[in-house]
Design a protein around this nucleic acid. Structure first.
Lengths: 243, 243
DNA sequence: GCGCGCTATTGATCTCGATCAAGGTTATCG
DNA sequence: CGATAACCTTGATCGAGATCAATAGCGCGC
């Protein structure tokens, strides 16, 4: 049992999610197809349509999945945070542009062996299903944001989601002061929220002026009253904090 | 082999997708947990948060998944067409409001036995993963539409997607004339596209005036030149028609 | 220190889609 | 057939966010 944890400790945090339920002999097999890749902030991991001979799990940093129209309009359709998975079984080509938003380390698995391994490891297959369903829920939550929320609500929602994830990792109470470094430029935020970077900047200024957030430098966000910010997202928030 | 097809023929079209790869003895087991439910257009199948003791596959008709904010703003986050699946393994409560958009028949499976069956039927589990990944791709395509497309592009995209699916089912060539009955009211289209119903109506009128579509009655859409309409979606469309 | 490139802020103006409002069409049912 | 209700269309106006433009801060190499 400690064996399992120790092995997977090479891929910190929740990459463990991928293999925590596997037995040691299976883990050894996973190790044979595993290697690491690093990217600098701004580098492209793959372009949509490129052949992708690996699947990967994010170890540290953030990657974004995006789609761009011919005239340059782009929409970020997903962020990959540590422990998130990239690549789809049975598909050889990337569906989206994948870009390192911050410096990024990924734990990669060669496609063929990984797929074969998955086919005979039910734990892993069901874990993949679970992760995919979570991503689907996240995408649908984002559809509500993109289709129906105001610019102000979009910014508040983004900060609440990042702040919540951050607080969860640090096991902090959610009603104290929460602070985090924004891992996105104004432009990336705009592309994620379906806004322009000017609107993002303006709405951040508004929230700051109203005391709902503070800025420390350009990138660090402090949320003095998490509940108050949540009230600006337009979401029902009677439920639990981690949803 | 004919046995399999015959059995699953009870659930027409691609519900077969769910069990086509299963062996006859397994299919018999599936049958023991199977029953049908019908809903009239407009009826609610479940509300978000309700306990849901079944999973289901759409046999005929269309269901919509939607989220509504306190002030009434609504976003449809997915349509379930025949063969699509409703319900998530391991989750007892509905995440979204599910509404019958047209008259609807679903093939339901009691949750517990179905989950147990899935756990020991790798075919089914991997089929579920595949379907979920497809839904995720569809959701992400929709995120681009919601975040970055104009009203005109949104309408054109909707018609192209419905027309394409329809043409695929009928095995028709995609460059002839395509016609289909719109299964959605203007309001439902608006909620799906992140618009108001007035804007939907106006943009349909514009496309009609320009000869890109024709209306037969209020609900039947005829696309005389599919390629021309596709050019209005803003999408890259050099690739294959079915993507 | 200075210039350069990148990122962010702020202002002025415009535009697309929302909103408010008034009819029109179609189906159903007595 | 006429009444009612649901759905759709069209017009007038408004406003949130886009667009265009100028300026400001910041890090980095020389």
């Amino acid at each position: 049992m400690t064996t399992a944890i120790k092995r997977c400790g090479e891929c910190p945090i929740r990459h463990r999610a991928l293999c925590a339920r596997c037995e040691p002999p299976e883990l050894e097999e996973l190790d044979t197809m595993k290697y690491y890749r690093s990217y600098e902030a701004g580098q492209t991991v793959v372009w949509a349509g490129d052949r992708m001979d690996f699947m990967a799990s994010v170890v540290s940093g953030i990657a974004s999945l995006s789609q761009t129209m011919e005239d340059g309009r782009t929409q970020i359709v997903g962020l990959l945070l540590p422990s998130d998975f990239l690549g789809r079984p049975g598909r050889e080509c990337a569906t989206y542009d994948v870009t390192a938003t911050t410096d990024l380390v990924m734990c990669c698995f060669r496609r063929k062996p990984f797929e074969a391994f998955m086919a005979r490891t039910p734990h892993l297959a069901s874990r993949m299903l679970e992760m995919t369903l979570d991503e689907l829920d996240a995408a649908r939550e984002w559809m509500l944001l993109l289709g129906r929320k105001t610019a102000r609500e979009k910014i508040a929602s983004l900060f609440v989601i990042i702040g919540r994830r951050d607080a969860a990792l640090k096991l902090k109470e959610a009603d104290g002061e929460i602070a985090f470094d924004l891992p996105l430029t104004r432009e990336a935020m705009a592309d994620y929220l379906g806004l322009t970077l000017e609107t993002v900047s303006r709405q951040i200024s508004v929230l700051k002026r109203e005391g709902l957030i503070r800025l420390e430098g350009k990138r660090r966000i402090v949320i003095p009253d998490f509940q108050a910010l949540m009230a600006e997202t337009g979401d029902d928030c009677d439920g639990g904090l981690i949803g």
